[in-house]
């Protein structure tokens, strides 16, 4: 278990500081769509928009969990230290909720609960007790239901998963980016398989 320096939370903060209105408005609409559309349009339960963990995925992106843990949750070493693998985590849902809310003292994992260590004790500590072990503050605060949603997302889609797959990647990004190409196997190679390689020589 390795510490993740607080520096790696900078980008979390920048999302919050840089785009407060647009991001929150966008997210609000995404969440609203996810919740209201199936009811309004009578869509069936298997429609992607009705997956309750979609809200958690939105939080995973909004809070920039992927800035350190990566889209696949495997984390890994690097300039920012070593974010833990959420795929290999043994934390329970409650423990994940606590970790997101309170951060991990002595590491770079930020806290995302408003008032943590001030109005609410975390790990039985306030800010003074935590001292140098005080985790960094997340760039955006999350409501309790958002924290629970992201924990549900991690439990449902990341914890216990093996190596990342092409299908998972495409589901995460749902875009035309080539970010998923390296996970392609012969069976999943679509017709644009050569596009990413370009002309090397």
């Amino acid at each position: 278990m390795r510490a993740l320096p607080a520096s790696s939370t900078r980008d979390v903060m920048m999302i919050f500081n840089g785009f407060p209105a647009t991001v929150s408005a966008l997210l609000a609409s995404v969440v609203a769509l996810n919740v209201s559309m199936p009811a309004a349009y009578g869509q069936s339960a298997q429609a992607p928009a009705s997956d309750p963990s979609n809200a958690g995925k939105a939080v995973f992106a909004k809070a920039n969990c992927l800035g350190c843990h990566k889209w696949h949750g495997n984390g890994g070493g690097g300039y920012g230290g070593d974010a833990l693998s959420l795929r290999k985590t043994e934390l329970t849902r409650d423990q994940i909720v606590e970790t997101v809310g309170c951060g991990r003292p002595g590491t770079g994992m930020p806290f995302f609960m408003r008032g943590a260590y001030d109005e609410v004790k975390c790990h039985d500590m306030n800010r003074q007790d935590a001292g140098a072990q005080m985790p960094p503050e997340g760039g955006t605060f999350l409501r309790q239901k958002d924290i629970e949603a992201v924990a549900d997302y991690v439990i449902a889609h990341i914890k216990g998963a093996g190596e990342p797959t092409y299908a998972e990647c495409v589901t995460f990004f749902s875009s035309t980016s080539r970010v998923c190409d390296i996970y392609k196997t012969p069976a999943t190679k679509p017709d644009d398989a050569t596009a990413s390689m370009g002309n090397r020589q």
Binding site: R2, P5, G77, G78, G80, D82, I182
Partner: peptide
């Protein structure tokens, strides 16, 4: 971080450790 060949993966950090400030 002591590196071994199995830790070398495409598109993943290959730094053998990390800095803090």
């Amino acid at each position: 971080e002591v590196m071994t060949p199995d830790k070398l993966k495409p598109r993943e950090f290959w730094t053998g450790g990390g800095p803090s400030q």
